[in-house]
Design a protein around this nucleic acid. Structure first.
Lengths: 152, 152
DNA sequence: AATTGACAGTTACATTTGTGACCAACTGTG
DNA sequence: CACAGTTGGTCACAAATGTAACTGTCAATT
Protein backbone atom coordinates (compact mmCIF):
# COMPACT_ATOMS: atom_id res chain seq x y z
CA UNK A 1 0.00 0.00 0.00
CA UNK A 2 1.16 3.50 -0.76
CA UNK A 3 1.86 5.37 2.42
CA UNK A 4 2.10 8.93 3.47
CA UNK A 5 5.05 9.94 5.63
CA UNK A 6 3.04 12.03 7.98
CA UNK A 7 5.95 13.69 9.70
CA UNK A 8 7.12 14.99 6.35
CA UNK A 9 3.72 16.10 5.17
CA UNK A 10 3.58 19.86 5.02
CA UNK A 11 0.10 20.55 6.46
CA UNK A 12 0.85 18.24 9.32
CA UNK A 13 4.23 19.78 10.04
CA UNK A 14 2.90 23.28 9.92
CA UNK A 15 0.21 22.41 12.38
CA UNK A 16 2.53 20.82 14.84
CA UNK A 17 5.01 23.64 14.65
CA UNK A 18 2.38 26.33 14.93
CA UNK A 19 0.80 24.64 17.92
CA UNK A 20 4.12 24.19 19.64
CA UNK A 21 5.22 27.76 19.05
CA UNK A 22 1.90 29.14 20.20
CA UNK A 23 2.03 27.03 23.28
CA UNK A 24 5.52 28.22 24.10
CA UNK A 25 4.53 31.77 23.43
CA UNK A 26 1.51 31.52 25.64
CA UNK A 27 3.87 30.96 28.53
CA UNK A 28 5.13 34.46 27.83
CA UNK A 29 1.88 36.32 28.32
CA UNK A 30 -0.46 33.76 29.81
CA UNK A 31 0.80 33.39 33.37
CA UNK A 32 1.15 37.07 34.15
CA UNK A 33 -1.82 38.53 32.40
CA UNK A 34 -4.36 35.76 32.13
CA UNK A 35 -5.27 36.44 28.53
CA UNK A 36 -6.88 34.01 26.17
CA UNK A 37 -5.55 33.75 22.67
CA UNK A 38 -8.36 35.72 21.02
CA UNK A 39 -8.04 38.38 23.70
CA UNK A 40 -4.34 38.67 23.07
CA UNK A 41 -4.99 39.04 19.37
CA UNK A 42 -7.46 41.82 19.84
CA UNK A 43 -5.15 43.56 22.26
CA UNK A 44 -2.21 43.22 19.91
CA UNK A 45 -4.19 44.44 16.91
CA UNK A 46 -5.47 47.50 18.72
CA UNK A 47 -2.04 48.11 20.18
CA UNK A 48 -0.66 48.23 16.70
CA UNK A 49 -3.38 50.15 14.91
CA UNK A 50 -4.73 52.28 17.76
CA UNK A 51 -8.32 52.41 16.54
CA UNK A 52 -10.16 49.81 14.59
CA UNK A 53 -13.60 48.25 14.21
CA UNK A 54 -14.35 44.72 15.36
CA UNK A 55 -14.93 43.74 11.79
CA UNK A 56 -11.53 44.99 10.74
CA UNK A 57 -9.86 43.17 13.60
CA UNK A 58 -11.50 39.95 12.54
CA UNK A 59 -10.41 40.41 8.94
CA UNK A 60 -6.89 41.24 9.90
CA UNK A 61 -6.31 38.43 12.33
CA UNK A 62 -8.48 35.83 10.62
CA UNK A 63 -10.86 35.42 13.52
CA UNK A 64 -14.54 34.66 13.34
CA UNK A 65 -16.69 37.64 14.16
CA UNK A 66 -18.31 36.07 17.19
CA UNK A 67 -14.91 35.27 18.57
CA UNK A 68 -13.91 38.89 18.16
CA UNK A 69 -17.16 40.02 19.70
CA UNK A 70 -16.56 37.95 22.79
CA UNK A 71 -12.94 38.90 23.17
CA UNK A 72 -13.87 42.55 22.83
CA UNK A 73 -16.48 42.26 25.52
CA UNK A 74 -14.06 40.51 27.85
CA UNK A 75 -11.45 43.20 27.36
CA UNK A 76 -14.02 45.91 27.78
CA UNK A 77 -15.14 44.43 31.07
CA UNK A 78 -11.57 44.51 32.23
CA UNK A 79 -11.39 48.14 31.15
CA UNK A 80 -8.59 47.44 28.74
CA UNK A 81 -10.48 48.81 25.79
CA UNK A 82 -13.25 51.27 25.12
CA UNK A 83 -15.76 51.52 22.31
CA UNK A 84 -17.44 54.45 20.75
CA UNK A 85 -19.86 54.58 17.92
CA UNK A 86 -18.50 55.61 14.60
CA UNK A 87 -19.76 58.96 13.35
CA UNK A 88 -19.87 57.92 9.74
CA UNK A 89 -21.60 54.61 10.30
CA UNK A 90 -23.51 54.05 13.47
CA UNK A 91 -23.53 50.31 12.98
CA UNK A 92 -19.87 50.01 13.70
CA UNK A 93 -17.93 50.74 16.81
CA UNK A 94 -14.46 52.14 16.94
CA UNK A 95 -12.35 50.32 19.47
CA UNK A 96 -9.35 51.75 21.26
CA UNK A 97 -7.24 50.64 24.17
CA UNK A 98 -7.58 52.41 27.46
CA UNK A 99 -4.49 53.66 29.26
CA UNK A 100 -4.58 50.49 31.28
CA UNK A 101 -4.85 48.39 28.13
CA UNK A 102 -1.89 50.15 26.63
CA UNK A 103 0.07 49.56 29.76
CA UNK A 104 -0.50 45.81 29.55
CA UNK A 105 0.25 45.84 25.85
CA UNK A 106 3.45 47.69 26.57
CA UNK A 107 4.43 45.03 29.08
CA UNK A 108 3.83 42.14 26.75
CA UNK A 109 5.38 43.47 23.56
CA UNK A 110 9.00 43.38 24.72
CA UNK A 111 8.53 39.84 25.92
CA UNK A 112 7.00 38.87 22.61
CA UNK A 113 9.84 40.45 20.69
CA UNK A 114 12.41 38.72 22.87
CA UNK A 115 10.63 35.43 22.44
CA UNK A 116 10.66 35.75 18.68
CA UNK A 117 14.26 36.84 18.58
CA UNK A 118 15.37 33.82 20.56
CA UNK A 119 13.51 31.60 18.17
CA UNK A 120 14.95 33.20 15.07
CA UNK A 121 18.45 33.26 16.46
CA UNK A 122 18.31 29.58 17.08
CA UNK A 123 17.40 29.12 13.47
CA UNK A 124 20.71 30.58 12.44
CA UNK A 125 21.59 31.84 8.98
CA UNK A 126 18.71 30.04 7.34
CA UNK A 127 16.43 32.58 8.87
CA UNK A 128 16.44 34.97 5.92
CA UNK A 129 15.43 32.51 3.24
CA UNK A 130 13.01 30.92 5.63
CA UNK A 131 11.10 34.10 6.34
CA UNK A 132 11.03 34.95 2.70
CA UNK A 133 9.60 31.58 1.78
CA UNK A 134 7.06 32.00 4.52
CA UNK A 135 5.94 35.19 2.88
CA UNK A 136 5.45 33.43 -0.41
CA UNK A 137 3.53 30.68 1.25
CA UNK A 138 1.25 33.29 2.75
CA UNK A 139 0.50 34.64 -0.69
CA UNK A 140 -0.12 31.19 -2.04
CA UNK A 141 -2.67 30.23 0.56
CA UNK A 142 -4.23 33.68 0.34
CA UNK A 143 -4.97 34.16 3.97
CA UNK A 144 -6.78 37.45 3.86
CA UNK A 145 -9.79 35.91 2.19
CA UNK A 146 -10.78 33.73 5.05
CA UNK A 147 -11.82 33.78 8.65
CA UNK A 148 -12.23 31.20 11.32
CA UNK A 149 -9.48 28.64 11.58
CA UNK A 150 -6.88 29.41 14.13
CA UNK A 151 -5.07 28.71 17.32
CA UNK A 152 -2.99 31.34 18.89
CA UNK B 1 4.75 53.33 22.48
CA UNK B 2 6.66 50.33 21.23
CA UNK B 3 4.57 48.34 18.82
CA UNK B 4 4.52 44.84 17.53
CA UNK B 5 4.06 44.28 13.82
CA UNK B 6 1.63 41.47 14.16
CA UNK B 7 1.67 40.36 10.56
CA UNK B 8 5.39 39.84 10.81
CA UNK B 9 5.32 38.11 14.13
CA UNK B 10 6.33 34.50 13.72
CA UNK B 11 3.83 32.73 16.01
CA UNK B 12 1.03 34.67 14.40
CA UNK B 13 2.18 33.95 10.87
CA UNK B 14 2.66 30.28 11.53
CA UNK B 15 -0.81 29.97 12.91
CA UNK B 16 -2.48 31.71 10.06
CA UNK B 17 -0.59 29.69 7.50
CA UNK B 18 -1.16 26.39 9.24
CA UNK B 19 -4.88 27.07 9.58
CA UNK B 20 -5.18 28.12 5.98
CA UNK B 21 -3.30 25.11 4.68
CA UNK B 22 -5.28 22.72 6.83
CA UNK B 23 -8.47 24.28 5.66
CA UNK B 24 -7.47 24.01 2.03
CA UNK B 25 -6.39 20.47 2.55
CA UNK B 26 -9.65 19.59 4.16
CA UNK B 27 -11.34 20.33 0.87
CA UNK B 28 -9.30 17.45 -0.50
CA UNK B 29 -10.60 14.75 1.80
CA UNK B 30 -13.55 16.35 3.52
CA UNK B 31 -16.18 16.45 0.80
CA UNK B 32 -15.74 12.88 -0.37
CA UNK B 33 -15.13 11.11 2.86
CA UNK B 34 -16.68 13.27 5.53
CA UNK B 35 -13.76 13.10 7.91
CA UNK B 36 -13.00 15.54 10.66
CA UNK B 37 -9.43 16.65 11.13
CA UNK B 38 -8.79 14.47 14.19
CA UNK B 39 -10.29 11.51 12.38
CA UNK B 40 -8.07 12.08 9.40
CA UNK B 41 -5.06 12.25 11.67
CA UNK B 42 -5.84 8.96 13.32
CA UNK B 43 -6.50 7.35 9.96
CA UNK B 44 -3.28 8.70 8.52
CA UNK B 45 -1.24 7.63 11.52
CA UNK B 46 -2.58 4.11 11.46
CA UNK B 47 -2.22 3.97 7.69
CA UNK B 48 1.42 4.77 8.09
CA UNK B 49 2.28 2.67 11.11
CA UNK B 50 -0.22 -0.17 10.74
CA UNK B 51 -0.68 -0.82 14.44
CA UNK B 52 -0.46 1.63 17.27
CA UNK B 53 -2.03 2.46 20.62
CA UNK B 54 -4.24 5.50 21.11
CA UNK B 55 -1.66 6.95 23.42
CA UNK B 56 1.05 6.65 20.81
CA UNK B 57 -1.15 8.25 18.19
CA UNK B 58 -1.76 11.16 20.48
CA UNK B 59 1.91 11.59 21.17
CA UNK B 60 2.82 11.38 17.55
CA UNK B 61 0.25 13.78 16.23
CA UNK B 62 0.14 16.11 19.23
CA UNK B 63 -3.51 15.51 19.97
CA UNK B 64 -5.17 15.50 23.35
CA UNK B 65 -6.04 12.02 24.52
CA UNK B 66 -9.76 12.61 24.66
CA UNK B 67 -9.66 13.90 21.13
CA UNK B 68 -7.95 10.73 20.05
CA UNK B 69 -10.38 8.66 22.04
CA UNK B 70 -13.33 10.24 20.28
CA UNK B 71 -11.84 10.04 16.83
CA UNK B 72 -11.01 6.38 17.40
CA UNK B 73 -14.54 5.61 18.44
CA UNK B 74 -15.97 7.41 15.42
CA UNK B 75 -13.70 5.47 13.07
CA UNK B 76 -14.51 2.26 14.84
CA UNK B 77 -18.22 2.84 14.42
CA UNK B 78 -17.65 3.32 10.74
CA UNK B 79 -15.73 0.08 10.69
CA UNK B 80 -12.60 1.77 9.47
CA UNK B 81 -10.51 0.56 12.36
CA UNK B 82 -10.50 -2.29 14.82
CA UNK B 83 -9.10 -2.57 18.32
CA UNK B 84 -7.71 -5.49 20.21
CA UNK B 85 -6.29 -5.64 23.67
CA UNK B 86 -2.54 -5.70 23.94
CA UNK B 87 -1.08 -8.93 25.28
CA UNK B 88 1.69 -7.23 27.21
CA UNK B 89 -0.44 -4.56 28.77
CA UNK B 90 -4.15 -5.16 28.99
CA UNK B 91 -4.85 -1.50 29.63
CA UNK B 92 -3.89 -0.49 26.17
CA UNK B 93 -5.52 -1.33 22.90
CA UNK B 94 -3.75 -1.94 19.66
CA UNK B 95 -5.49 -0.18 16.82
CA UNK B 96 -5.35 -1.23 13.19
CA UNK B 97 -7.24 -0.23 10.08
CA UNK B 98 -9.79 -2.59 8.63
CA UNK B 99 -9.69 -3.44 4.93
CA UNK B 100 -12.28 -0.76 4.42
CA UNK B 101 -10.23 1.75 6.38
CA UNK B 102 -7.20 0.96 4.30
CA UNK B 103 -9.21 1.40 1.17
CA UNK B 104 -10.23 4.91 2.21
CA UNK B 105 -6.70 5.69 3.28
CA UNK B 106 -5.48 4.48 -0.10
CA UNK B 107 -7.90 6.82 -1.81
CA UNK B 108 -6.90 9.87 0.15
CA UNK B 109 -3.14 9.48 0.10
CA UNK B 110 -2.64 10.23 -3.59
CA UNK B 111 -4.80 13.30 -3.26
CA UNK B 112 -2.80 14.42 -0.26
CA UNK B 113 0.45 13.93 -2.11
CA UNK B 114 -0.84 15.85 -5.10
CA UNK B 115 -2.06 18.63 -2.86
CA UNK B 116 1.30 18.95 -1.22
CA UNK B 117 3.15 18.83 -4.51
CA UNK B 118 1.07 21.66 -5.93
CA UNK B 119 1.83 23.72 -2.86
CA UNK B 120 5.54 23.07 -2.96
CA UNK B 121 5.74 23.67 -6.69
CA UNK B 122 4.16 27.06 -6.26
CA UNK B 123 6.85 27.85 -3.75
CA UNK B 124 9.48 27.47 -6.45
CA UNK B 125 13.19 27.07 -5.85
CA UNK B 126 12.99 28.31 -2.28
CA UNK B 127 11.40 25.05 -1.39
CA UNK B 128 14.61 23.25 -0.45
CA UNK B 129 15.92 25.77 2.04
CA UNK B 130 12.44 26.28 3.34
CA UNK B 131 11.87 22.63 4.19
CA UNK B 132 15.26 22.39 5.76
CA UNK B 133 14.62 25.38 7.97
CA UNK B 134 11.28 23.89 8.89
CA UNK B 135 13.10 20.82 10.11
CA UNK B 136 15.34 22.90 12.31
CA UNK B 137 12.41 24.75 13.69
CA UNK B 138 10.85 21.44 14.59
CA UNK B 139 13.92 20.53 16.58
CA UNK B 140 13.98 23.87 18.28
CA UNK B 141 10.42 23.69 19.52
CA UNK B 142 10.88 20.04 20.38
CA UNK B 143 7.48 18.87 19.40
CA UNK B 144 7.61 15.29 20.59
CA UNK B 145 7.44 16.31 24.22
CA UNK B 146 4.00 17.76 24.12
CA UNK B 147 0.37 17.04 23.44
CA UNK B 148 -2.74 19.11 23.19
CA UNK B 149 -2.42 22.22 21.08
CA UNK B 150 -3.53 21.99 17.49
CA UNK B 151 -5.83 23.94 16.04
CA UNK B 152 -6.04 26.02 14.09
C1' DA C 1 -40.12 58.62 2.07
C1' DA C 2 -40.86 53.77 1.44
C1' DT C 3 -38.77 49.51 0.22
C1' DT C 4 -35.11 46.36 -0.53
C1' DG C 5 -30.76 44.31 0.14
C1' DA C 6 -26.41 44.42 2.45
C1' DC C 7 -23.76 44.77 6.55
C1' DA C 8 -21.75 45.41 11.78
C1' DG C 9 -22.41 43.39 15.73
C1' DT C 10 -24.85 40.42 19.26
C1' DT C 11 -27.31 36.49 20.86
C1' DA C 12 -29.19 31.66 21.24
C1' DC C 13 -28.22 27.27 20.16
C1' DA C 14 -25.33 23.29 18.59
C1' DT C 15 -20.94 21.24 18.16
C1' DT C 16 -16.24 20.66 19.44
C1' DT C 17 -12.66 20.66 22.67
C1' DG C 18 -10.45 20.54 27.20
C1' DT C 19 -10.49 19.29 32.41
C1' DG C 20 -10.75 16.41 36.04
C1' DA C 21 -12.52 12.41 38.07
C1' DC C 22 -12.58 7.71 37.44
C1' DC C 23 -11.60 2.55 36.45
C1' DA C 24 -8.82 -1.10 35.48
C1' DA C 25 -4.31 -2.69 35.02
C1' DC C 26 0.59 -2.08 35.37
C1' DT C 27 5.11 -1.30 38.21
C1' DG C 28 7.78 -1.11 42.05
C1' DT C 29 8.74 -1.46 47.01
C1' DG C 30 8.34 -3.49 51.31
C1' DC D 1 1.37 -10.71 48.79
C1' DA D 2 -0.11 -5.96 49.93
C1' DC D 3 0.47 -1.31 49.13
C1' DA D 4 1.23 2.97 46.73
C1' DG D 5 2.01 5.40 42.73
C1' DT D 6 1.55 5.56 37.73
C1' DT D 7 -0.56 4.94 33.29
C1' DG D 8 -4.03 3.94 29.15
C1' DG D 9 -8.39 4.91 28.23
C1' DT D 10 -13.23 6.70 29.04
C1' DC D 11 -16.78 9.59 30.83
C1' DA D 12 -19.29 13.65 32.79
C1' DC D 13 -19.02 18.11 32.92
C1' DA D 14 -17.28 22.86 31.71
C1' DA D 15 -15.35 26.06 28.52
C1' DA D 16 -14.50 27.53 23.87
C1' DT D 17 -15.93 27.86 19.13
C1' DG D 18 -18.95 27.88 15.11
C1' DT D 19 -23.76 28.54 12.88
C1' DA D 20 -27.65 30.82 12.07
C1' DA D 21 -31.03 33.94 13.24
C1' DC D 22 -31.90 38.66 14.65
C1' DT D 23 -31.38 43.95 15.47
C1' DG D 24 -30.34 48.27 14.07
C1' DT D 25 -28.26 50.97 10.41
C1' DC D 26 -26.81 52.19 5.83
C1' DA D 27 -27.14 52.72 0.75
C1' DA D 28 -29.61 52.35 -3.39
C1' DT D 29 -33.74 52.42 -5.93
C1' DT D 30 -38.17 53.70 -6.76
Amino acid sequence: MVKLQLEQFLPYRLNRIAAAVSQDFRSVYGPHHDLTIPEWRVLATLGQFEAMSAKAIGRHSAMHKTKVSRAVRALEERRWLRRRQSEQDRREEILTLTAQGERVYGQIVPKAVAFERRLLEQLGPEVGPFLEALGHLEEIVRIAARAGGERD
